[in-house]
Design a protein around this nucleic acid. Structure first.
Lengths: 115, 115
DNA sequence: TGAACATATGAGCAGATAAACATATAATAC
DNA sequence: GTATTATATGTTTATCTGCTCATATGTTCA
């Protein structure tokens, strides 16, 4: 058993990790990767726009006044995080949200920053 | 009014932004800064440890097997984001969570990655 | 088939960031 | 006061990240 000093509660924590539902380190990594996606204004803006309607890449770029390639790169991140999906309609790719938790996460975050 | 091409829904979006509760750009920036704090495994681990008890800096460093200065730096970020607070007890600084939304955000994130 | 449009991808660069290291501040005991 | 312990902060460095530019892929239509 590891014990460094009297005031260190490492054993208490180890005990608790085994018996409770504290996220283990691998889950922590996955969680961090997930939240990292929300930690960029461009991606957040895309998500907030898609909350209300599906939009094509060109529209997103026009609305946000950014280059199409920049938007496409961020959409790739969002796809990989399984936060958006798209369907083809002719030449266009129409993106929409693919995760039901996004609105919840948004509103919880907004509650925090408005306090 | 701005209008680039037929398929661009920028006017529709502008209309909606004025009448609904879409976060405006400043809120988007604040939200991104908020979620950025959750986007690092070290900070997430600290938050998850503090969910169950208050801990001093030394304990956090010992449990996480990291240097004290690294922990202190991250605690500063967490303080600035108003996610943790601390009280002095002698030489020690005992940190605890200062925001009620943290558990909610955690569990929502976990729901997503476990799907 | 080729031209035009819509989107995706790869490379490079500039700015951001997290840890390490050195050092400073704070609190207690002597 | 000094020594010791606990924590905080400033600086440097290596890594990561988001944008731009160039280019490739995909789709439609003539």
């Amino acid at each position: 058993m590891v014990k460094t000093k009297d005031y260190c509660r490492i054993n208490e924590v180890i005990e608790e990790e085994m018996t409770s539902n504290i996220p283990v380190d691998e889950e922590i990594m996955d969680l961090a990767d997930f939240f990292k996606v929300f930690g960029d204004p461009t991606r957040l803006k895309i998500l907030s726009l898609l909350e209300h309607r599906e939009l094509c890449v060109h529209d997103l770029a026009a609305i946000m006044d950014m280059q199409q390639t920049a938007i496409s790169h961020q959409l790739k991140s969002l796809r990989q995080a399984r936060l958006v999906r798209y369907r083809r309609e002719g030449k266009m790719a129409l993106y929409s949200l693919s995760d039901s938790h996004i609105k919840e996460i948004f509103s919880t975050g907004l509650e925090h920053i408005k306090e």
